[in-house]
Nucleic acid binder design. Structure first.
Lengths: 172, 172
DNA sequence: TATTGTTATACTCTATAACTATA
DNA sequence: TATAGTTATAGAGTATAACAATA
């Protein structure tokens, strides 16, 4: 989320749903990012690790295409994850230009712990809601997500809308 | 919100609410930012203009404190808004060190059009929901927001959690 | 000649620290 | 001397373009 500051006195629960979504969504993202630091990874790394999990042995070019970034960016990204011991680069025997990317055991471990973190995060964010309210919220959000063609796994991020800094709204 | 990539196959509407919130929240933010470009302002500018509206004549130092950024940052921010003709700097007659910030007529106009944009944005985001569903969603989100002490007007942004780039999840 | 990964370069955004003018 | 605003400097992050190895 490039997060966005939307003005809005939410005058009753009917209006201002857009602002609330943005506001609460930002909170959820922020808290999740906070939990990730315990694993030593950044939000964006999650997507990278997951892509490597799903498409084991993919090339850096392929990863760059999936991420929508340039190949040189992937070099730095993988450098970092490799230094942390989470992924490996391996020369392909079929095409020696290619580096095949794979998760190490440590990388798999991070992915596993990430799932646990997800559960704890879930509980933290919606702790104020009853089980039935959570179901309702999930259903409505899924409906909104589907209407905008958001796929279940992929986070939109800001691509395309990034013209300025993420956020500089009031802090008090 | 710096948006965050959370993994998650949402297996039924009960789990994955955290991810959905982050995902849909990011979408709402992104779309809102897109609409703002028509006004020639950036997401963060909204908070600045609103602060100047509420506290007319405030100093740049005061604004910096509210935004949680350094004074030098405010210089650049106001430079831009002044160049666009939305705000003015005026030497205080009481303390000539201070620049009092005020909105121009054009600035007021932008704020007004921002409210219209907010309505259109609202309609776009939740167009898939019925009026009653929108109310329910609003109620639940307000409950979650309140449980985390989110104030009705202020967008959290990422302050504090910003350790890395905003987002680099998969794009397909 | 085209493609993969890398390195080099430049540009943007931001924070910190000097500087000036007022107090 | 302390404070408001400004400017200067340096750092991080990212994108584009040049480069070496391989096809």
């Amino acid at each position: 989320m490039d997060d966005v500051t939307e003005p809005g006195t939410h005058r009753g629960p009917s209006g201002r749903v857009g602002f609330l979504l943005s506001q609460v969504g930002a909170l959820a993202s922020e808290r999740f990012a906070g939990r990730l630091t315990a694993l030593g990874v950044q939000p964006g790394d999650v997507g990278i690790l997951r892509l490597i999990t799903v498409e084991e042995g993919l090339s850096q070019q392929a990863l760059a295409a999936r991420l929508g970034v340039g190949p040189s960016r992937v070099v730095a990204l993988i450098d970092e994850l490799e230094k942390k011991g989470l992924v490996t680069r391996e020369r392909s025997t079929k095409d020696r230009r290619i580096h095949e990317l794979r998760l190490t055991d440590a990388g798999e471990g991070v992915m596993a712990r990430m799932r646990e973190i997800g559960s704890a995060h879930e509980e933290e964010v919606v702790h104020a809601l009853s089980a039935s309210e959570r179901r309702t919220l999930g259903t409505l959000l899924a409906k909104v997500a589907a209407s905008h063609r958001l796929t279940p796994d992929v986070h939109p991020g800001y691509r395309g809308a990034r013209t300025g800094p993420p956020e500089r709204s009031a802090g008090a």
